[in-house]
Design a protein around this nucleic acid. Structure first.
Lengths: 361, 361
DNA sequence: ATGAAAGCGCTAACAC
DNA sequence: GTGTTAGCGCTTTCAT
């Protein structure tokens, strides 16, 4: 009968046959103690090299694999992180998730991804699940500015998206909406679209408020009364963009139309509506999106858009979070710039008024 | 000084101030034992209702939250599952993931999603990570038919995709490729496209083999030598579809062209190439896709495609997996049918040859 | 450099 | 119905 230093007899008998090998099994084979195995396998410094090799060999021989659960419970670190986004079906958020995912993998951590579907109750429930899973920290794009849930979240958090400014004490990564919106508006301006219609987000959402505030300011600065702008609200979905566009087309009558949508899905919906109405983009209708989702290349013409650094947001957020968890950095606010992508959905009214219709932008 | 039944003095002192409340803290407040708290909170039946309420109240009063790590370690069930797909950036797989995600959430479980990027080594590494995380089971679409990794995976697995037939002993959920391909080919046939060019997947991949085998058989049955078909290989990406289409266009010369792509991303790439070549879809080029990704509605014309039940695959796979883990069902092979979606990317050669060019399909 | 002992927070037998 | 007693598999002092 085999016996081990630490009452191995009983343990060994008990395990024989059914369960996965544990650190104790490895210890038995290598002829060392539990702690030595732990040290060898965790790459500690204070251990004899020969002993380490012996242990590693023993571990391999029985296909031992560390139990993360036990390790996490004891060490107080799970090596898991959480990500809560409003809508994982939206390619933009999927891209953010991918950025975070990749960075996490790179750090040998895993990521639990949840979609709140713009529902505060679901968000709260996901936050609770993350807490119970004892993740080491979370990246979240809060649906509402409800300080409560996040404040008592009780673990490292990095904010993404529009809520950053409401939580000055939390780290955050976001895109420069103001710069992006202005860039888009300037671009439209340069093509002769002085008063684009706007397809905005849902009234209550903070992202919508921020977007519209910049639009508002921009037009004030350009001696245009923002109140004269045609603004139709959407829900960030294709369908809602389509609906909004139909409303705009009805109100605008027969003239040339230009719309700036608050996200690409709605912009693409607007393009669908344009086609349905028997109109041509960009000849009759110019469309500018916001996000930079991959699907923008598929439409005809391709969707011109203000691209947010989705991947980068996820990436940097994860980076920031792990820095915070490891105590490297405590607090930082990162703002990544947007980028203009021109693919053909905008007519150049300046050139076209000179006699030649051109589709740039 | 407060004392508890189970040597609470020391424990309590130790915890005071720093850590999250545990079951012992709750027990102290409610004036019951650890186990009673556990029973109350886990909804066991053998417990007095008043006691339960007392415990629940005590738990709430200090914001107690179950530690999943400890629970999992002790009970041997983590309530976590794994999902390994080849490419999470492909909307098709993203959709599968969402199906699984939703179903998992519905069962109060969480899902760890990994992308193997068609790389067997990464796949193996992900499987190891899942094992170490002690997930209760995994859904995987194996990159290769390498029996080894999966066979020794050592926990419940549900296969998705083409590998199902190679592992007859494992549960699986897949789409009916044969039925889908035949449906697509029949559809093309009915529109007068008797010998479509094919944009296939990469030569080595099993999915490619299965797809081509059906194509092959179909044409044999229809008295056409499969060898006369024009087949160009792609990598399931937009770019590769675009490249393949350019090659096809070059070889086909000026006549009407019809292509059947093995996935939507490549089909959409083909449409891009068509536009680049100055040709019109469907007037000059007819395109049929395979997958049914959402982006297919954005192109102009919309992409006609054979839609696989992506969401359903994820959903059913998760269902099957949890059944298996809970010991309800041990083994099952599910095959979900594909569906034809017609959006306009296919010309009707039959009607057009009667004098009127029509774009159906 | 290594071993022994003490838990991490919880659940599962087993008593009563 | 409730309390007691053992651990789940690991890390972490503390000795040696």
């Amino acid at each position: 009968m085999v016996t081990f230093p630490q009452g191995g007899v009983v343990r060994y008998m008990k395990k024989a046959g059914n369960n996965r090998p544990t650190i104790i099994d490895v210890a038995g084979i290598a002829g060392v103690s539990k702690s030595t195995v732990a040290r060898a396998l965790s790459g500690a410094s204070n251990i004899n090299n020969e002993t380490r090799e012996k242990v590693v060999k023993a571990a391999q021989s029985i296909g031992y694999e560390r139990n993360h659960l036990a390790q996490s419970l004891r060490s107080g670190r799970s090596g898991m992180y959480g990500l809560v986004v409003p809508d994982i079906a939206n390619p933009f958020w999927a891209e953010v998730a991918r950025g975070a995912q990749d960075k996490a993998a790179q750090k040998d951590a895993s990521l639990l991804v949840f979609s709140s579907d713009w529902n505060p109750a679901r968000e709260a429930s996901h936050l609770r699940a993350l807490r119970q899973a004892r993740v080491d920290g979370a990246i979240v794009n809060p649906v509402e500015d409800n300080t409560d849930d996040l404040a008592r979240f009780g673990m490292p958090v990095v904010l993404i998206g529009s809520s950053a400014e409401r939580f000055p004490e939390l780290s955050s990564v976001g895109s420069d909406i103001a710069q992006g919106v202005r860039m888009g508006l300037n671009h439209l301006n340069s093509l002769g679209h002085m008063q684009p219609a706007i397809i905005s987000g849902p009234a209550g959402r903070l992202a919508h408020v921020r977007f519209m505030r910049v639009v508002h300011d921009y037009f004030l600065e350009h001696n245009t009364d923002p109140a004269t702008l045609l603004v139709e609200g959407g829900e960030y979905t294709v369908q809602s963009g389509q609906d909004a566009m139909h409303r705009i087309l009805k109100k605008k009558g027969d003239g040339k139309v230009c719309v700036f949508a608050a996200n690409d899905l709605m912009a693409l919906g607007a393009m669908l509506a344009t086609r349905e109405a028997g109109l041509k983009c960009p000849q009759d209708v110019s469309i500018l999106g916001f996000d930079g989702i991959p699907a923008g290349v598929f439409s005809d013409p391709g969707l011109s858009t203000v691209a947010k650094p989705a991947r980068g947001i996820g990436d940097r957020a994860m980076e920031l979070l792990s820095d915070q968890v490891d105590g490297r950095v405590s607090h930082e606010k990162i703002i990544l710039p947007c980028e203009m992508i021109t693919r053909g959905s905008l007519a150049d009214m300046v050139k076209s008024s000179n006699g030649q219709l051109m589709a740039t932008g």
